[in-house]
Design a protein around this nucleic acid. Structure first.
Length: 585
RNA sequence: CACCCCGUAGCUCAACUGGCUAGAGUAGCGGUCUUUUAAACCGCGGGUUAUGGGUUCGAGUCCCAUCGGGGUAACCA
């Protein structure tokens, strides 16, 4: 069933056709202007700058003129009518221009009416630039329409009988204009001017209809005090119809632009170092490289099971074996786990491996990188998140895992055996089961007692060997590996190792994992013979790092839900309303 | 899977303790008018209250089930 408004749109579509206009033309529409090329804000800026140049009324007077005009929304008539104001700032005096400024001698009072056009620069006046641009109607006040393109909005003015509608016979303008609806796409040609109220506006000389919208966009309105009306906020609708969300909520688009920027900053930085962006398999016969439950699928021709990757680590290391000294990949990972505000079944990780480096070098690299990202994405190295100020300028605090537990629980677990660790867990009411080994128990204590305290960027280093089968044994501390995780606001953001490149040690670690699997750990790692073969040929000492791009984006855009930084977060299937069967006559 | 909250017009929201024909604004339609601006003014349409049952003289409101969303918890990054 179509709603009343949908029927109106379809009738309008037909009406446009009846007027001889194709509502979905095939040919391109050439554009030479973006709505952000010149804005009302630019007008204000130019105005202030130019008035500063005016001599004779002095700086105080100039400031007053600007203030007055702004307060009157650039209604110059108001200024001229206010005699008291005119006198107070000396508006009747002749203006003496700076030597560099080419203007006729005049009084400010005579000059002010020309200001609005003047401040448009190349865009102003009858000989101003002819603008070609396209977008969709977001507000419609009959002769004033707001047009939105990919960058922003600009107001257009359709003055009766002063513009041509492509393909339309003369005299039918009014009929046509009635068929314009919110969301319709228009191609426009015109010149810029400034209205009495100080709005930068394009006076249209030529209009071409580009596409019809058959559904009603939920237009969000804002008054001059910034109050928002009819905000499109229902999360379900926003995520399911992201195209609508992006159209009517500019702040949403902003998040995704920042996400792209963040990834590009990383990409550029890595490329500058000569590291190589690569792609590795998403469908894997063995789901290695991390501890998580996979999605399983099946290949028909090969008649074999395949898994969606839970990590790409083992493939990237194979490439280091192959002789590249730096490889990185931005890739989707798939984990068959729960969903909440920080977890989506598919998520994006950036993994990088650099030969001849260690995890200490990697900490320094990450500090440099994150500081750069914060600066370029948010404009500052301090970023507000969840009401806190996160400082991304390095160096970051470093603590070993044992030190951090000692700090927040006053218990030294470094020398404890499995039984003693279980005792500590019991003391803190942490649930444990038999499948948990020493490493997992320590991780539980850490997760329960330490994590939440790590607000500012903090490296936790040197993890127990049992929970990290792919990292190299610590150079000095027995029973630990060279690993760090970066925590920000109590959440893990990055994970890195000095990579294990001793194939015999690696085989042993995999076997320990099999042991854990036997005890019931369904996330223990699987042994990958081909990966071991690669290590046996020889892998150089290497440091590797993984960063959760979604979570980092959340940090940089102050979002509390992962769904806000994914274009299309995973959702349950939308219930399809069964169409009523047509009654046969 | 467990617990809590929510689902009313295209959109944002009302509707008291279960009680009159489920109301506003916006969007839409018909006018007037416009260098206007969440334009304004006059008039008019628009609803199986998520879906299916039940209790009741009477259900948007109470009960049960289902679907969808949000939150907490668990898992995980």
């Amino acid at each position: 069933m179509l709603s009343e408004q949908e029927i109106v749109r379809r009738e309008s579509l037909q009406a446009i056709r009846d007027l001889g206009i194709n509502p979905f033309p095939a040919e391109k529409f050439e554009v030479n202007f973006k709505t952000t090329d010149f804005t009302t804000a630019d007008l204000h800026k130019n105005m202030e700058a130019d008035i500063e140049k005016i001599k004779g009324i002095g700086k105080v007077g100039a400031a007053k003129v600007v203030e007055f005009l702004a307060k009157n929304r650039f209604k110059v008539d108001n200024v001229l009518a206010d005699e008291e104001f005119m006198k107070s700032v000396g508006l009747t005096e002749t203006i003496e221009w700076d030597s560099g400024v080419d203007r006729p001698s005049t009084t400010l009072a005579e000059y002010i009416p020309t200001l609005r056009t003047d401040f448009l620069g190349d865009y102003g006046g009858d000989d101003g630039k002819e603008l070609l641009f396209a977008g969709r109607i977001m507000e419609n006040r009959t002769s004033f329409l707001n047009i939105q393109d990919a960058y922003g909005r600009v107001q257009i003015y359709l003055k009766k009988k002063e513009f041509v509608i492509e393909g339309l016979e003369e005299g039918a303008e009014k009929l046509f204009q009635k068929q314009l609806h919110l969301g319709d796409y228009l191609g426009l040609r015109g010149k810029m001017f400034v209205t009495q109220t100080g709005e930068v506006t394009v006076k249209v000389s030529h209009l071409k209809f580009l596409a019809k919208s058959l559904r009603n966009l939920p237009i969000v309105k804002k008054d001059k005090d910034g109050n928002v009306y009819d905000a499109f906020t229902d999360p379900e609708l926003r995520y399911r119809q992201r195209y609508v969300d992006l159209t009517v909520n500019p702040h949403v688009k902003e998040i995704f632009l920042k996400r792209v920027k963040l990834m590009n900053v990383m990409r550029n930085y890595f490329n500058d170092q000569g590291w190589l962006e690569v792609e590795t398999p998403i469908l894997q016969p063995i789901h290695g490289g991390a501890a998580a439950r996979p999605f399983k699928t099946h290949h028909n021709t090969l008649d074999m099971p395949l898994y969606m990757r839970i990590a790409n680590e083992l493939y990237l290391k194979r490439l280091i074996v192959g002789g590249f000294d730096g490889v990185y990949e931005f890739g989707k990972m798939f984990r068959n786990e729960g969903m909440d505000r920080t977890h989506n079944p598919e998520f994006t990780a950036m993994e990088i491996y650099v030969a001849y480096k260690d995890y200490i070098w990697m900490m320094e690299m990450v500090e440099t990188l994150l500081e750069k990202i914060a600066q370029e994405v948010t404009g500052s190295t301090t970023v507000g998140y969840d009401g806190k100020e996160i400082n991304f300028a390095g160096p970051y605090l470093r603590m070993t895992m044992f030190e951090s537990i000692k700090k927040y629980t006053d218990i030294d677990v470094s020398k404890m055996n499995e039984e003693e660790l279980r005792g500590v867990c019991k003391q803190f009411h942490i649930e444990v089961d038999n499948s948990m080994g020493k490493g997992k128990l320590i991780d539980e204590i850490f997760g329960e007692k330490v994590e939440a305290n790590l607000i500012q960027p903090t490296y936790i280093t040197d993890y127990p060997i049992e929970m990290t089968p792919l990292a190299k044994k610590h150079r000095t501390s027995e029973g630990l590996v060279e690993r760090f995780e970066l925590f920000i606001n109590g959440k893990e953001i990055a994970n890195a190792y000095s990579e294990l490149n001793d194939p015999i040690d690696q085989r042993g670690r995999f076997e320990d994992q099999l042991e854990l699997a036997k005890r019931g750990d369904d996330e223990a790692m699987v042994l990958d013979e081909d990966f071991l073969r690669a290590l046996e040929y020889g892998m150089p000492p290497t440091s590797g790092l993984g960063i959760g791009i979604d979570r980092l984006t959340m940090m940089m855009t102050n979002q509390k839900s992962i769904q806000e930084v994914l274009f299309f977060p995973q959702m349950k299937a939308e219930t399809v309303v069964e169409k009523e069967e047509e009654t046969t006559e």
